[in-house]
Amino acid sequence: MLSHLKSRSMTITLLFLAAIMAAYASTVSAADSPVAAPVAAPQVVARVNGVPIYNSDLAPSVEKRIAQYRQLGSKANTDELRKRFQLKELDGLIARELLVQAGASLDSKDIEQRIEKRLAGSSAGKDGQKSRSEEQLAATKAKLRRNILIDDYLESRGLLNPKIDDQELRRFYDKNRQSFHEPKTVKASHILVMIPKNATPEQEKEAWSKAEKILAELKQGQDFTQLAKQNSDCSSKANGGDLGFIKQGFMPKEFDDAAFKLKPGEISGIVKTGYGLHIIRVSEVRPEGVRSFDEVKTFIAGYMRTDYQREKVEELVRELKKSARIEVLIN
């Protein structure tokens, strides 16, 4: 299914980001006081060619992974999870540091200008800078510098925006054609008149009267979109009742039974569901079938680009590790 490939593509992207592009913790300054309390030296968890990686960088990414694991329902001991994720997350930070150092070796000349440009275009731009301390701004710039160095190195290896040949895209499509199978869908809009829960006979009668009045107005040629905006009890009223393309099972059975019998341009009678009373219009029908190559080409290119980039970056990191001095100071 196309949704499965999208899910897999997203998973690959998340893993790539977690392993290679981990975020940085902000620097923290000691509080001002006449006699400053002694500050413990930051814990070094690894060194890459003499450059330290601190626990203040590692700990937040480990805790984030633990939180994600908890959301999936894991009841494992927190200390066990922390031990499981520590080395994996540290490996990602080591990989990132290797890529930063490789980018620095290229000796790019316009890094400061590019930092300022990215800063101006971000949420921490000129307005944001006014409310940020010098230390916060310095940390943001340091992070941008590292990102630029990695981008430069990946670009030098043809991996920043790798191009996938059209023939490769076509081969992927032909090999996975059934993954692009789509069921019949209809582009539907509706006007909903809600019936309150535990409605009295009078309330239900009032809802039916309102729906019948709207249906009569539609039969007289009034505009469906405008009537939906004026009368519908569904949030889709803001878009004239438009629900987009839906497949069977997305809406209640009674709704589906009516909508999937309509031809483009037709309007249903009043359809009762557990939500209330619907008047449905179908504007387009897409029959069941396999989506064409042109329809999915952009998606395939993005999917293959991400997969290709992940594999090649992992290869680069393995090569960089061979000539690097890496000390891991935790176990």
Rank of each mutant, 00 (worst) to 15 (best):
M1H: 11
M1L: 04
H4K: 12
K6T: 04
K6L: 01
S9H: 00
L14V: 10
L14T: 10
A18W: 12
S29K: 04
D32P: 15
S33K: 14
P34K: 05
A37D: 10
P38N: 00
V39L: 02
A41L: 00
A41D: 05
S56A: 06
D57K: 01
A59I: 08
S61I: 14
K64V: 06
I66R: 07
Y69C: 12
G73E: 10
K75R: 14
K75E: 05
K83I: 06
Q86R: 15
E97R: 12
E97L: 06
Q101D: 07
A102G: 05
A104D: 07
A104G: 03
A104M: 01
Q113F: 01
K117N: 07
A120V: 13
G121A: 13
S123P: 12
S131D: 15
R132Y: 13
R132F: 15
R132E: 15
S133H: 09
R145F: 01
R145N: 00
R157D: 13
G158P: 14
P162C: 10
Q167F: 12
D174E: 13
R177K: 12
S179T: 01
K197V: 07
A199Q: 01
E202F: 03
E206V: 06
A207C: 02
A211R: 07
I214G: 08
L215Q: 03
A216L: 10
E217Q: 15
G221C: 09
D223Y: 02
D223K: 10
D223S: 07
K229Q: 15
N239Y: 11
D242Q: 04
I246H: 06
I246K: 10
K253P: 09
D256P: 13
S268T: 06
V271I: 15
G274F: 14
G274E: 04
G274L: 10
L277P: 06
H278M: 11
I279P: 05
I280L: 15
P287Y: 08
R291Y: 06
V296F: 01
K297L: 03
T298V: 11
I300P: 03
G302C: 04
G302I: 04
R305P: 05
D307E: 09
Y308D: 08
E311M: 08
E311Q: 13
K312G: 13
V313C: 05
K321S: 13
A324L: 10
R325L: 04
V328Q: 00
